[in-house]
Each structure stands twice: as C-alpha cells, then as structure tokens.
Amino acid sequence: MGKVAAVLRIMPESAEVNLKDLEQSIRKKVKGIQDVATEPIAFGLQALKIAVVVSDDEGGTDMIEKALSEVPQVGQVETIAVNRMI
C-alpha cells in the first residue's frame, strides 16, 4: 500500500489556549508528526496545522483525527488535504 501525505487543521477550544503548550501535548499524543505551523485565523485566534504521513489503507485519517480530538484544549480537527505520495 502507498503512503498518503495529510495536512490537518486543529482549532483550539478557545482563543485563550496557548498554542505552544497545545503543540507539546499533541506531539506527545500523536507520533510521526512531520511538520507543524500556526495559521492565523481572525481576531487573534490561531489554528495549528500539521503534516503527517499515513498509509493508503482502511480508515483513512480517522485514527489520527480521533487521537487529536482527545487531546485536552483541542476544539475541531479537520483534514484539509490528502495527497498520495509517489
């Protein structure tokens, strides 16, 4: 099976959440995160964007979405792009 590069956007629970701390807890919970960036949204609210590689297999990005949603202070988790890797 091939590999899929996925980019997910993680919205914090509130605008007051410290994104540095949130990134730490996310990295602790989910292994294999290859890149993290913050994305400014609006009115001081920021989101985290992460890049991960998952296998082109049963379940898609479900497991990782679920794991991320369970991290404290995480609001919505959304897969914004999936791309097969050569």
Binding site: G2, D57, D62, A81, V82, R84
Partner: peptide, 15 residues
C-alpha cells in the same frame, strides 16, 4: 493525487 482507499473519500468531499 487522490488516495486509492475509499476511506479518504470523506476528505476529498469535505476537504
């Protein structure tokens, strides 16, 4: 480059 597995279909539709 769309993944082959059908479980990614949700991502393609709502992504």
């Amino acid at each position: 480059d769309c993944p082959g597995h059908r479980d990614f279909v949700k991502n393609m539709i709502t992504g």
